[in-house]
Design a protein around this nucleic acid. Structure first.
Length: 280
DNA sequence: TTTAATGTTCATGA
DNA sequence: TTCATGAACATTAA
């Protein structure tokens, strides 16, 4: 489900649904979801009586600020949150529900993840900045934070395929496999172009498309290829806008050439061979 | 039965 | 150090 626009949709939903609530009890049904050295019961205990102050986002990470802790949550491939008001909490948990947060008002927040790839960890709120620095997470994809000069110099340093570079979150945060294909298509750049060979013009276009595509998708509540609902039960609307992802064999909207699918860095990659030519 | 799927992290070898 | 590759995590659906 989650690239930056989807995570942002979840963040907004959670802020509306659980901000201000107090955690009464946490049940962990699949301990591997939790990144901790503590026994899982002790970890759960740490969350008791903590109030949910606010939910922020950095790249694809959710940061749930509690009274004494910051709960960092990454949805990876298929993580989601479900919320049930008092009286509507299911009597038996869903098959893929791995963490349940029972609130003092009788409502419940659940973490649901078919593939169990998502992770949560509890850190000192003072250490949030350090947490992302350690991971070398790149800037947020906004005009203000995502600087052309920094982007250009980071691309000059590597001969890796531009798609691989954009996916590793270090030059810029938030792109995943869907939006990276969209961005490269709109920028008319072949996904296997070596990053250091891009012209300054191309880098400029790329930066603008990254900002614009993620911003537009965020405004429309994200997209998703599988049926996905955010915690509010709303569907992302950006899916309809996808021009290249998942359109293998269909015709390019600009030149009617059939869209091709290849592997780049192990990921399925869609592109138009005519609009996105590969040069030396 | 095989393969691929919205992501990150770790190990290995060049 | 850097990079590429593959595996791991685990399940579902085509």
């Amino acid at each position: 489900m989650p690239e930056l626009p989807e995570v942002e949709a979840v963040r907004k939903g959670l802020n509306q649904l659980v901000q201000g609530k107090v955690i009464q009890q946490v049940t962990v049904d699949w301990p591997n979801i939790i990144d901790t050295t503590l026994p899982i019961d002790e970890w759960s205990q740490l969350l008791q009586n903590e109030r949910i102050e606010k939910i922020e986002r950095r790249g694809k990470y959710l940061i749930i600020y509690l009274t004494h802790w910051a709960l960092i949550s990454h949805l990876r491939m298929e993580g989601k949150y479900n919320f049930y008001p008092k009286g509507q909490v299911p009597s038996q948990k869903g098959k893929h529900v791995h963490v349940r947060f029972l609130m003092t008002d009788g409502s419940q927040l659940e973490y649901d993840d078919v593939r169990k790839f998502g992770r949560m960890t509890l850190i000192d709120p003072q250490g949030v900045g350090r947490y992302f620095e350690e991971r070398k997470l790149g800037p947020e994809p906004t005009k203000e934070q995502f600087r052309l000069d920094d982007f250009a110099s980071s691309l000059k340093k590597t001969k890796r395929a531009i798609k691989t570079v954009l996916l590793d979150q270090k030059s810029v945060a938030g792109l995943g496999n869907i939006y990276v294909d969209e961005v490269l298509f709109r920028s008319k750049i072949h996904p296997e172009t070596k990053a250091d060979l891009l012209t300054l013009n191309q880098v400029e276009t790329l930066r603008e498309q990254i900002i614009q595509v993620l911003q537009e998708a965020t405004a429309k509540g994200g997209s998703t290829i599988r049926t996905y609902k955010n915690s509010l039960g709303e569907l992302g609307q950006y899916q309809k806008e996808l021009q290249i992802y998942g359109r293998t064999g269909a015709l390019c909207i600009h030149c009617q050439t059939p869209i091709e699918k290849i592997k780049v860095g192990g990921r399925g990659t869609h592109y138009c061979p005519k609009c996105q030519p590969l040069k030396a």
